[in-house]
């Protein structure tokens, strides 16, 4: 069960990383996710059915996601739409795009080679999934770690953190936001491509709930791995995706029907959002109690001292004279 979760988690990890880029780096909740995830799946499966290799098809899926991100980015920055609305518009439009790409709502792969078939067939499916997931996710993480060490990456982080200051320092913030959307949705579409190959089909409905899955993975990851370095933060996303898969597998094992997984996902997200808040509140209260205790003791001491001073000036004087 854990092994399966690790494999599946690694395939979902690019989604978590994509959501992390918009949500954490750019500070934008991007709903394009729900459209770019199935877009990646649709493009990849269609490309494979028309004879492209799995690698090329997956890369095409990634690029398609980048284009979707570009559209949302332009709607957001150039047409000055609220980012939530921009994402909703792209996501809605992508439904039709995905239908056109696939031709029907569910397209299965036939005997096409998927990424895992490049590996020795003697390996178990779980091992194959883990190896493919680890390689793809590893490449994505490595490229992003490199990106965020470049000046462009710094400009991206600055834009998300303080766009007024970034613009004042010569950064074209609109461009940065668009680039961020593109990289993010490229990763998300890549995740869709991997999942489609793992499932053996692309489905028009596979994007539903992906933003919740992505956000939950981001937050779960951050609960377990905290840090400022970018490689640590990205690793936290991978870990988050794996733990999230594990939680879902456990729930399925407990006998929850597949139809209930979405509400379960939503429930997990609510919990992981509330957990750190409650934790903080608890910690603050404990701290305050400790502080008040100290102050109380000190005040007590202080008033005692002043009382002493008032009542026995001679004592003080005499001590001085000694």
């Amino acid at each position: 069960m854990l092994i399966t979760s690790i494999g599946q988690g690694l395939l979902w990890a690019p989604l978590a990383i994509g959501v992390f880029i918009t949500f954490r780096i750019l500070d934008i909740p991007d709903l394009t996710t729900e459209g770019s995830f199935p877009l990646g799946a649709a493009v990849t499966v269609s490309a494979m059915l028309s004879g492209q290799s799995a690698v090329t098809a997956s890369l095409l899926g990634f690029l398609a996601g980048c284009i979707a991100g570009w559209v949302t980015g332009v709607l957001d920055t150039k047409l000055h739409m609220p980012s939530l609305l921009a994402g909703i518009l792209t996501m809605t439009g992508l439904y039709s795009v995905n239908m056109h790409i696939m031709g029907k709502s569910n397209v299965p792969l036939l005997d096409q080679k998927v990424l895992t078939t490049y590996l020795p067939q003697t390996w178990s499916i779980d091992l194959q999934t883990i190896v493919v997931g680890a390689i793809v996710t590893g490449v994505v993480v490595a490229l992003l770690v490199w990106l965020f060490k470049t000046r462009l990456g710094l400009s991206l982080m600055a834009t998300g953190n303080n766009s007024a200051m970034s613009a004042a320092n010569g950064i074209y913030t609109d461009r940065m936001v668009i680039i961020g959307y593109m990289v993010s949705n490229g990763c998300i579409a890549l995740s869709g491509a991997l999942i489609a190959q793992s499932n053996g089909y692309a489905d028009i409905g596979m994007g539903i709930g992906t933003i919740v899955i992505g956000l939950a993975s981001v937050l779960v990851g951050e609960i377990f791995l905290r840090g400022r370095q970018i490689w640590l933060r990205l690793s936290a996303m991978v870990l988050g995706a794996i733990i999230y898969r594990f939680l879902l597998t456990v729930a399925m094992g407990l006998g929850f029907p597949v139809d209930d997984l979405k509400i379960l996902s939503a429930g997990i997200l609510v919990i992981v959002i509330c957990l750190p808040i409650l934790q903080n509140k608890y910690r603050t209260r404990q701290q305050l109690k400790r502080y008040l205790k100290q102050i109380g003791a000190d005040e007590h001491e202080a008033s005692n001292r002043s009382l002493n001073r008032q009542t026995s000036p001679e004592g003080l004087l005499s001590r001085d004279s000694k």
Partner: peptide, 22 residues
Amino acid sequence: AGELSVAQNLTLAQQHTGSMSL
């Protein structure tokens, strides 16, 4: 930029051009 370090902020200010550099 509050989330960035002092050094990173200085880099942003010092290298005004080349904000897209790799």
